[in-house]
Write a protein that binds this DNA or RNA. Structure first.
Length: 820
RNA sequence: GCCGAAGUGGCGGAAUGGCAGACGCGGCGGUCUCAAAAACCGCUGGGGUCACACCCAUGUGGGUUCGAAUCCCACCUUCGGCACCA
C-alpha cells in the first residue's frame, strides 16, 4: 500500500470561487437593501442606469464599479445607503433588432435585461435590486404617462407645428439636443427639416432657473455646457411698421444692440418667416419662391456653415424704422434662423459683421452710428463696440456703455419696443414616430379635439405583435384596433395619439421612482420622497450634460411646483467619469478589435482585480486607455493581501518597540490618506496608498516577531480600507479572521493623529534656493535648531562660507532655505 | 471665431508654491531552484564621473518669488463643448 500522501498546501487565492460564494450570500441575505424604516441618516448614491443592449461592456464597469466603491464607503461610514439599479429599456435598438431579425421588441428587451442583470452580478456591486425599475414595464411607463398628463394640466405640455429635426435613418423626429453638428446623435444620419405638428414640453419656462446652479456641486464643465446650451441673451424687441397695404401688424425684431437702430439700413427675415408670403411684391415673388425652395432643400449642415458666402433675396417690400421714420428694404436670407428670436433682424452693417458682409455683397447702405468708425476710407469690417453715438438724433454723443440702456428706455416710453431676453434653448420636442416607447396618453376626438386619457385608465398599453416597417409614421397608426377608441368625454369615436414619448422622458424621473418603486397608487409617496430624495451623489458620463441632465432638472423643478418634491435640484453632487478606451487608445469597438470584454476579464483575473485595475489606470474623471498588462500589478497586490491575511508572522508582545510604533504609524497614516482619497474619488492614488501599506506589512513580517496588536490592527485596517474596492477578497479574509459578517457593514476606521505623527522628519537644506543636502530632525525642531544643524553640514558650511544669512526660510517638516 | 480642460520618464500616472517622477507596468541585475514559473530584494529621466561632485530636465518663450510642474503674461499642440443665435 503505497499511497502518496498529499499534504494540504496553504490555500491559494482563487478569486472566482470566493466571488461566487459571497455574491450568493449577499443576494440570499439581501444585505444591500436599503430599508425605508432605518433610522440612520440616508445616503442616496446613483449611477446612470444602462440601456439593456444585451451586453455589459467595460464602459459600464468603468462607470459603475467606482460608483459602487464610493457607495460602499458611505455605508461603512454609517449611512443607510440606497444604491439602486435598473434599465432604461425603451428605445430604438429594440425596434431595429425587431425589424432586422423579426424578434418582438419586448421579448428582445426583457431577455437582454435578464442577461445584463446576471452580468451586473459578476461585478459584485452593492445594488439594491429590490428597487429595480425597468422603464419599458407597464408598471413603470404607466407613471411616465401620468407625468405627461400632469405636465399637460400645468400647461407645460403642448402640441404645436414647428420645423422639426427629422432623422431619415431613425424615421423619427429628434429633439434639438439629439442633433450634433447637423447629424443624428444616434445614427449619424444628416438631419432634415420637416414642418410637423408635435408634442413639446415647455422647458423654456424654466430657462432662467436652469441657469442657476445654487446648492449643488456639479462639475464646472457640465454647468458651462448647460449655460451655453440655454444661451441666454439680453437685448430688446423693436417693432417696425411694414409699408405694405393691408399689412397692419408690426414686424418685430430681437436685437442685443438696440443702440445701433439708427444704423439699421435694411431688414432681414428668415425665409420661413410667416410674413414673407404677404409682403412680397409681384415682381419679386418668383425670386423669393425660388430662394425659399432652395433653402428648404438645404441640409442643416449646409445652412449653418459659417464659411459659405451670404445669399438672400429682396422681397420688394419696405419697413419703417420707428426711430428715424425712414423706409428700409426687407430682404430674406438663410443666415437668419426662424427658430431664434423673432426670426427677423434689423441689419446694421456698420456694427455687425454678418450684416456687413450681406450689405457689401448686395450693395446696401452702410451707416455708422459710433464715432469709432474711420469714415475717411471704406470700411473693411464691422466695428462691434466702443466709442460714442453719432448719426443718432437725440442720442448723439452717448457713450457706448450707456447706449443700450438709454435707447431701450426710449423705445419703451414711445411704445416702439421693450427690453427682452431670448434663449437659444428650444422647448423639448418629445414626440417620436416609433413603436418602442411609452404611448402619449391622449386621444383625438371629432367633437372635443385633443382629450387626455383619464388617469384611472392608465397605462395606455402598447399593443403587442405588431409590424415595424418604418414608414415615417408611428407603426401604431397601422393598428386600427388600437388606434380606434372612444372619447373620454362623450364616449364617441376617437383616435389615439400614435406617437410615443422620447425615452429621455423615462430617465427624467427614474431617480424618484427608486424611492418607492412598487407603489401601485402613485409614482411615489410623499413620505418616500421626503425620506430619500434628492440624490446625494450622482455619477455618470458627461455625454448627457445637455440632454438627460438638463431634462431631469426641468422635471424636478416642474415636480416641485406641483408640490410633489421638496428642494430645487434633483442631484446634489455630480461626478462625471471619463471614457475608458481600448488598450490602443481608441474607443472600444468591434470593428477595431480592441474590445475588452468584462466577463472574460472576470473569468481570467476575478471581479476584484478587474474593478481595481479600472480604478487604478488613472483619475476617474479623465478616462483613458485600459491597460491589460498592468493587471499584473493588481494581481500581485491582491495576492500579497491574501498572503498577509493567511500567513501571519510570529506574533509577540512588543507594544513599546520602535518597529511596532512604525507599523502603527504606517497604518494610521494610511487611514488618513485613503479616506481623503475616496472622498475625492481619487481611486488611483487610494490604491497606491494601499499598495504601500501592504508592502510595509510585508517588510514587517519579513523582519519577524511582530507585535500581535499592531499586526492585527494593520491587517484589519487594510481589509476595511480595501473593502469598497475589492469587496469579495476582503469579505473572505474578514471571515477567516473570525470577524462577524459582513465587512461591508463594519465601520470605516478612523485615524489616530497621535499614532500617525512622525517623531523625526527628513528636511531639505537649500542654499540660495538649491537643494544641497538633507538632515533628519525631530518633528518639532525650531528654526534655530534646524539652522544650527544645517550649518554643521560640511557642504552647507562651505557654500555659506562664513557669511551671515540674508534670510532664512524654514518650513517645519519640509525645508530650510538659507539665502546668503 | 468663442468658452472650457489638458500637455511631466519607454508607458499609465503622482506631486496644485517647498526633495519632480509616489504607486504600477515594462526593462536590467540578484535571491530561491537541477531548471523554469511564481514569489521576494535591488537598480531604472538625461548628461557627466571609476565613484562622488556637479550640470540639465515637467509643451515653448518671458515674468513674479528665497523657491514654480504648480501663480501671471504671450505662444504652440491635443481633446471636449458652442458657433451666421442677431
Amino acid at each position: 500500500m503505497s499511497r502518496i500522501e498529499v499534504t494540504a498546501v496553504a490555500d491559494r487565492y482563487e478569486p472566482r470561487a470566493i466571488e461566487k460564494k459571497w455574491q450568493a450570500r449577499w443576494k440570499a441575505e439581501d444585505i444591500y437593501h436599503a430599508p425605508d424604516d432605518d433610522p440612520r441618516p440616508k445616503w442616496y448614491a446613483l449611477t446612470m442606469f444602462p440601456y439593456p443592449s444585451g451586453d455589459l461592456h467595460t464602459g459600464h464597469w468603468y462607470a459603475m464599479a467606482p460608483s459602487d466603491a464610493a457607495a460602499r464607503y458611505r455605508r461603512m461610514q454609517g449611512y443607510n445607503v440606497m444604491f439602486p439599479m435598473g434599465f432604461d429599456a425603451f428605445g430604438l435598438p429594440a425596434e431595429n433588432a425587431a425589424i432586422k431579425r423579426g424578434i418582438d421588441p419586448a421579448e428582445w428587451t426583457f431577455a437582454n435585461v435578464e442577461r445584463m442583470r446576471e452580468q451586473l452580478r459578476l461585478m459584485g456591486a452593492g445594488f439594491d435590486w429590490d428597487r429595480e425599475v425597468v422603464t419599458a414595464d407597464p408598471s413603470y411607463y404607466k407613471w411616465t404617462q401620468w407625468w405627461f398628463l400632469q405636465l399637460y394640466k400645468e400647461g407645460l405640455a403642448y402640441r404645436a407645428g414647428a420645423a422639426a429635426n427629422w432623422c431619415p435613418g431613425c424615421q423619427t423626429v429628434l429633439a434639438n439636443e439629439q442633433v450634433i453638428d447637423g447629424k443624428c446623435e444616434r445614427s449619424d444620419d444628416i438631419v432634415e427639416r420637416r414642418f410637423l405638428t408635435q408634442w413639446f414640453f415647455k422647458i423654456t419656462a424654466y430657462a432662467d432657473e436652469l441657469l442657476r446652479f445654487e446648492g449643488i456641486e456639479w462639475p464646472e464643465r457640465v454647468r458651462n455646457m448647460q449655460t451655453n446650451w440655454i444661451g441666454r441673451s439680453e437685448g430688446a424687441r423693436l417693432h417696425f411698421a411694414v409699408d405694405v397695404p393691408g399689412v397692419e401688424e408690426k414686424l418685430t425684431v430681437f436685437t442685443t444692440r438696440p443702440d445701433t437702430v439708427y444704423g439699421a439700413t435694411f431688414m432681414v427675415l428668415a425665409p420661413e418667416h410667416p410674413l414673407v408670403e404677404r409682403i412680397t411684391t409681384t415682381d419679386q415673388r418668383a425670386a423669393v419662391e425660388d430662394y425659399r425652395a432652395a433653402t428648404a432643400r438645404q441640409s442643416e449642415i449646409e445652412r449653418l456653415s459659417t464659411e459659405k458666402e451670404k445669399t438672400g433675396v429682396f422681397t420688394g417690400a419696405y419697413a419703417v424704422n420707428p426711430f428715424t421714420g425712414s423706409r428700409i428694404p426687407i430682404w430674406i436670407a438663410d443666415y437668419v434662423l426662424v427658430t431664434y428670436g423673432t426670426g427677423a433682424v434689423m441689419a446694421v452693417p456698420a456694427h455687425d459683421q454678418r450684416d456687413f458682409e450681406f450689405a457689401l455683397k448686395f450693395g446696401l447702405e452702410i451707416v455708422p452710428v459710433y464715432d469709432v468708425v474711420d469714415t475717411t476710407k471704406p470700411m473693411e469690417r464691422a466695428v462691434t463696440y466702443g466709442g460714442s453715438m453719432i448719426n443718432s438724433g437725440p442720442f448723439d454723443g452717448t457713450p457706448y456703455d450707456q447706449a443700450i440702456a438709454r435707447v431701450t428706455a426710449y423705445a419703451a416710453e414711445h411704445g416702439i419696443g421693450e427690453a427682452a431676453v431670448t434663449y437659444r434653448l428650444r422647448d423639448w420636442l418629445i414626440s417620436r414616430q416609433r413603436y418602442w416607447g411609452a404611448p402619449i396618453p391622449m386621444v383625438h376626438c371629432e367633437t372635443h379635439g385633443i382629450v387626455p386619457v383619464p388617469e384611472d385608465q392608465l397605462p395606455v398599453l402598447l399593443p403587442e405583435k405588431v409590424t415595424f416597417l418604418p414608414t415615417g409614421q408611428s407603426p401604431l397608426t397601422q393598428i386600427e384596433s388600437w388606434v380606434n377608441t372612444t372619447c373620454p368625454v362623450d364616449g364617441g369615436p376617437a383616435r389615439r395619439e400614435t406617437d410615443t414619448m422620447d425615452t429621455f422622458m423615462c430617465s427624467s424621473w427614474y431617480q424618484m421612482r427608486y424611492a418607492d418603486p412598487h407603489n401601485p397608487e402613485r409614482p411615489f409617496s410623499s413620505e418616500a420622497a421626503r425620506k430619500w430624495l434628492p440624490v446625494d451623489q450622482y455619477t455618470g458620463g458627461a455625454e448627457h450634460a445637455v440632454m438627460h441632465l438638463l431634462y431631469t432638472r426641468f422635471f424636478w423643478k416642474a415636480a416641485r411646483d406641483m408640490g410633489l418634491v421638496e428642494g430645487n435640484e434633483p442631484m446634489l453632487r455630480l461626478f462625471n467619469q471619463g471614457v475608458i478606451l481600448g488598450p490602443d487608445g481608441n474607443r472600444m469597438s468591434k470593428s477595431r478589435g480592441n474590445v475588452v470584454a468584462p466577463d472574460e476579464q472576470v473569468e481570467k483575473y476575478g471581479a476584484d482585480a478587474f474593478r481595481c485595475q479600472l480604478m487604478f489606470v488613472g483619475p476617474w474623471d479623465q478616462g483613458g486607455p485600459y491597460n491589460p498588462t498592468g493587471m499584473a500589478g493588481i494581481e500581485r497586490w491582491l495576492n500579497r493581501l491574501w498572503s498577509l491575511g493567511t500567513e501571519p508572522p510570529t506574533l509577540v508582545d512588543a507594544s513599546a518597540s520602535a518597529a511596532t510604533r512604525a507599523l502603527r504609524r504606517a497604518t494610521h497614516k494610511t487611514i488618513r490618506q485613503v479616506t481623503k482619497d475616496i472622498e475625492e474619488f481619487s481611486f488611483n492614488t487610494m490604491i497606491a496608498r494601499l499598495m504601500e501599506h501592504s508592502s510595509a506589512m510585508g517588510r514587517a513580517r519579513e523582519a519577524g516577531n511582530v507585535d500581535r496588536g499592531a499586526w492585527q490592527e494593520a491587517l484589519e485596517t487594510a481589509l476595511l480600507l480595501t473593502a469598497p474596492l475589492a469587496p469579495h477578497i476582503t469579505e473572505e479574509l474578514w471571515e477567516r479572521h473570525g470577524h462577524p459578517y459582513s465587512i461591508h457593514l463594519a465601520a470605516w476606521p478612523t485615524a489616530d493623529d497621535e499614532l500617525a505623527r512622525d517623531d523625526e522628519l527628513e528636511i531639505v537644506v537649500q542654499v540660495n534656493g538649491k537643494v544641497r543636502d538633507r538632515i533628519t530632525l525631530p518633528a518639532d525642531a525650531s528654526e534655530a535648531d534646524a539652522l544650527a544643524a544645517a550649518r554643521a553640514l560640511p557642504k552647507v558650511a562651505e557654500l555659506i562660507d562664513g557669511r551671515d544669512p540674508k534670510r532664512v526660510i524654514y518650513v517645519p517638516g519640509r525645508l530650510l532655505n538659507v539665502v546668503v
